[in-house]
Nucleic acid binder design. Structure first.
Lengths: 342, 342
DNA sequence: ATGAAAGCGCTAACAG
DNA sequence: CTGTTAGCGCTTTCAT
């Protein structure tokens, strides 16, 4: 360890001394202020480079009461939808020299609430989030909002929180997915979903129910499999049990993690897709096209949703956006593949 | 917006006034210091809760010269290996109340270097990283190390930087993958890889070459397809061209993103896997088992690698670990599936 | 165009 | 056990 971490610590004072200027002048020069002469700026820049000077982020944040940092709060990172959304967010914030703190709730309300409590520390200027599936009470979110920290939701939004929201048309997407299965000849369609409160889950379920009901089918609750956990093995078992007892000829899976579980369940029961059961899943997995069989998906514009969320958050931060909170609905796309072929 | 962001800002002074104590006492009470009476601590806690007091993170960081924040610097987030590794990192840092800033290099040296320059601002206490494939010069990394910021590499390490490193045995994994293909009857094995400098790429290539050479096969450079970009379409075309001209009967793909490209290339050329070409890929994709056909993978312990990286970083940060930097080699696992069946 | 000085909110000596 | 004091490094009036 070369450990030059104590003595050669170079700050504004060092620079000021080096150039016979005040720290105020250095500060202004570094930020390219209008009332510093061009020549002085050049001298400052040169010295900064030469001495490896980088302004201390926390001193600056403390003084300015703003941090150029946002929080991304999501349930899970090993998920194509969320990781693509992060790419979208990053595409906007990185050029602006903003920083992203990432927090994973693992769908736990307790963790989410604890994270929000911490964020009141002024650590971030704003938040982009997808709420945990187990979150019902939203007091923690409203409390942070009250401190003046803007929050933008994407995908898993909270209905009872007033904030900017980026979603896809979950109701229609599910409705269309169900119609797609009906047109493929299914008479007996089940929904495989996860437990939780976010409105996107109920919207997807309602879209599924309405599509069936509007087309002469009934939808009793036995046709809805609610996977209660994230352990692949248990989900597979729940789905297998359903396939064995209810014998659906079509399945709509509402979240990405259920795609693999559904395929494995069919596999283990030697059920053919799409012969015995047709499957469509809400997922952004890039491998959907090369699955056995290729999976019909409801594809969300994850990258663009992240981009939009970041852009709206920036508008709020800059004060440019003063209108009331908006809900932006972006289009999902049903990509038909062999898993739903007639 | 209830906007209580100005007037009711509650800090230590507020609390001190409220309780007729000094800010020093508040500070110590909040941190559960031994020289504060139990009773006072309770009063402080109560008041803190009542007034929604949360210590300002930046004031604390500035004063303590440490931020309880680390940086995770990776090439890409929409990648199973990296997102699983992040889960591993998070499992260690979250309970310790550490925060993670995430930076994506998109494999660009310029972005990586610029990020490292910024980190000299004291924003983070340490770094966990996987280097960009285009990074050859490592000056930016060494420069940050010289400020005393510990860096732990995982997977894509820099050979010429002295630091803690968590890797898998890339040479042997590739060697074994090649042997696996030979045993499956391949006579004509190609490597599909990406351009770049990280030693894991050359190790994987060397393992492949040695396995063939040691078993009586030659490995000329025409058998190595170097995909130069990340646009799926172009990669598919490069692989198709190779399949058409060289006609390999076995393929080893060195990184996750090449799995889908390879499958699509075979698909478009109507080549059967494993009949015409057998395929094995370094990937952690959960869908490997349900691909058409199920894909033989070299599975890295991504979650545990992230965990280890975080644990070692914490040892460094706490000063517990004083020995010289270590390289921890963790085992990969060859998971044989139908894509390499004889 | 530059500088002096105050202070962001917290912590760590040190005194009492 | 509690308080006083001096900063951490920066930004921002306000003078000059």
């Amino acid at each position: 360890m070369t450990g030059g971490n104590k003595n050669d610590k170079v700050n504004m004072k060092t620079l000021a001394k080096e150039l016979n200027l005040s720290t105020a002048t250095i500060s202004k020069a570094m930020r390219d202020s209008y009332d510093i002469s061009h020549e002085t700026k050049l001298r400052v820049m040169e010295a900064a480079r030469r001495l490896n000077y980088v302004p201390n982020a926390y001193a600056s944040s403390l003084r300015k009461q703003s941090s150029n940092t946002i929080a991304i709060i999501i349930p899970e990172i090993a998920d194509s939808f969320f990781s693509q959304a992060i790419n979208g967010i990053e595409s906007i914030i990185a050029p602006q020299k903003y920083h992203a703190l990432i927090y994973l709730t693992h769908d736990s309300y307790e963790r989410e609430a604890s994270m929000f409590n911490d964020l009141a520390s002024g650590r971030v200027d704003g938040v982009i989030m997808s709420v945990a599936s187990s979150t019902q009470d939203t007091g923690h979110i409203k409390k942070l909002q009250e401190t003046g920290t803007p929050i933008v939701f994407f995908d898993r939004v909270c209905e009872d929180v007033t904030a900017d929201k980026i979603i896809t048309d979950d109701y229609n997407s599910a409705y269309n997915a169900a119609v797609h299965l009906l047109l493929a000849g299914c008479k007996n369609i089940s929904l495989v979903t996860i437990s939780g409160y976010p409105s996107i889950l109920s919207a997807r379920e309602q879209g599924y129910r309405d599509a069936l009901n509007n087309n002469g089918f009934t939808t009793d609750d036995t046709r809805v499999v609610t996977c209660s956990n994230k352990y692949m093995g248990e989900n597979v078992n729940e789905i297998k049990a359903h396939l064995t007892t209810v014998k659906p000829d079509g399945i709509i899976a509402t979240v990405e993690q259920l795609a693999t579980a559904t395929y494995l369940a069919c596999d283990e029961l030697k059920l053919q897709i799409p012969g015995d059961v047709k499957v469509v899943c809400f997922t952004n997995q890039i491998t959907a096209a090369i699955l056995n069989p290729p999976l019909t998906t409801v594809l969300q514009p994850a990258y663009d949703m992240g981009k939009q969320a970041a852009e709206i958050l920036f508008s709020r931060l800059s004060g440019r956006l003063i209108e009331s909170e908006q809900e932006l609905v972006m289009p999902s796309q049903l990509v038909a593949r062999a898993s739903t072929a007639s």
